[in-house]
Amino acid sequence: MLINNLLIWRDKHFAHPDKKYFLDKNRINLAEHAPMLVGDLPKLLKTSAEILNFYSSKLFRIIHFFEDFQIEHDVDKLFMVFNQHLENN
């Protein structure tokens, strides 16, 4: 579900805005249609690490270890970047 919501945001908002979410007067609220919550970020990063390790182990026989504190640090970095973006726009 989380990955699907992320893909919807990518496809409908960031990559190529869909008019039914922006221009249509009866537009669909994207945040309600595909919610992404702050608490989802650590889950998303953990899932990304699992996917990376799956392919890395199959292709290169290498597994990367990610500790929870690393992921928390990455989430903090993401919020810092988001805040900088909001301040500059």
Rank of each mutant, 00 (worst) to 15 (best):
Q84P: 02
L41V: 14
P35K: 04
I28M: 12
L37V: 07
K46A: 07
K58G: 00
A49D: 03
N26M: 09
I51G: 02
N26C: 05
M1C: 04
I71R: 00
N53G: 11
D24S: 10
I28W: 03
F14I: 15
K77A: 08
I62G: 03
E67H: 05
N88F: 03
E50V: 01
D24F: 13
K43W: 07
K12D: 00
R27C: 15
Y55N: 00
H73R: 13
D24Y: 10
I3E: 11
D74S: 08
T47N: 05
H13M: 09
Q70C: 01
E72H: 08
L45F: 12
K58Y: 11
L41W: 15
L59A: 09
K19Q: 07
D74H: 04
T47R: 13
R61P: 00
F82I: 09
D11V: 02
H85A: 03
F65K: 14
W9P: 09
D24W: 12
I8W: 05
R27M: 05
Q70F: 02
I51A: 02
V81G: 01
N53V: 01
S57D: 03
E32Y: 02
A49H: 02
H33Y: 08
H16I: 00
N88H: 04
K20A: 12
P35H: 07
Y21M: 11
K25W: 06
R27H: 10
I62E: 11
V81M: 11
D74Y: 01
E50A: 05
I8S: 12
D68S: 08
D68T: 09
K19M: 13
D18K: 04
N29G: 06
S57N: 04
R10L: 14
H13D: 12
W9Q: 12
K20D: 14
E72T: 12
N4S: 15
N83Q: 12
N4D: 11
F69W: 15
F14N: 10
L23T: 06
H64M: 05
I71S: 12
P35V: 04
L2H: 09
H13G: 04
E32I: 07
L45Y: 06
N26G: 13
D76F: 05
R61A: 05
D40P: 09
L78Q: 03
V81D: 08
D40T: 06
L37I: 04
D40G: 04
M80E: 14
F82G: 08
S56H: 06
Q84D: 11
N83F: 10
F82L: 14
A49W: 04
N89D: 15
D40Q: 10
L86N: 10
P17H: 07
D24G: 10
L2A: 01
N88G: 10
G39I: 06
T47G: 01
D11E: 10
L41E: 07
N88D: 13
H64N: 13
M36G: 06
H64K: 12
M80Q: 14
W9T: 09
K12V: 07
E67S: 05
Y55D: 00
I63D: 11
L2W: 07
L23R: 11
P42L: 00
K25G: 01
P42C: 02
L30Y: 06
A49Q: 08
H16E: 15
F54I: 01
E72L: 12
M36K: 07
K19T: 03
N88S: 14
E67I: 04
Y21V: 03
R10Y: 13
F66A: 11
N89K: 15
